[in-house]
Amino acid sequence: MAGECHCLLGDNGAGKSTFIKTMSGVHKPSYGRILVDGKEVSFNDPRDAMAAGIATVYQDLAMIPLMSVTRNFWMGREPERRIGPIKVFDHRRAGAVTVAEMAKMGIQLRSADQAVGTLSGGERQTVAISRSVYFGARVLILDEPTSALGVRQTANVLSTIDAVRKRASAWSSSHIMSAMRWPSATVSLSSITARRWALRSVVRSMPNSFRI
């Protein structure tokens, strides 16, 4: 459901990443079912999951630093414009959409052709998140979104999650309790449901089928 925010907590080796990868189509569940809109689905690869509206943002594999924000944002789904018989990359439209989408997340870009390498870690994550949301993600999964970030950047990512919540359901994993307490405080303040599996044993005994 849009507006929900779930935290997945657990110690090292508890199975957080495996759980997330199962949800995003990297691994197949050995047993249990995944339900989307009440229907059972089986994902063969991450693209199937994306088609079903489940997008995953990985900590380090999200962006290509030497490419511009626009090129990263549209990577794999470039908008095209016809000039006579040839189709060209519609830079103007792509740039305008990118700047607008980033502004919705609270990040003002100097220009759309700014390299991603010039952004901070948290801002890069925001590009990845807004990209997923723009391309129709209903469920957004963030794998350890704050593990490599500083205090300020962590706050930025968490406020991004807060912004995303209005449009999609967010799942986020972390093994740092303090980092995850932060949004749960925000979440409870804005009266949003938060489910937490804090203990390893609880994660282990998680229900095999979960509703999305």
Binding site: M63, I64, R71, M75, E78, K87, F89, R131
Partner: peptide, 24 residues
């Protein structure tokens, strides 16, 4: 510089795994 395929060339060289994740 001006086509979709060009962007894929940059993406493939920049980070092949990241490019694969988004369907390049």
């Amino acid at each position: 510089v001006r086509t979709k395929f060009g962007n894929w060339i940059f993406a493939a060289g920049g980070d092949a795994q990241a490019a694969r994740y988004v369907g390049v």
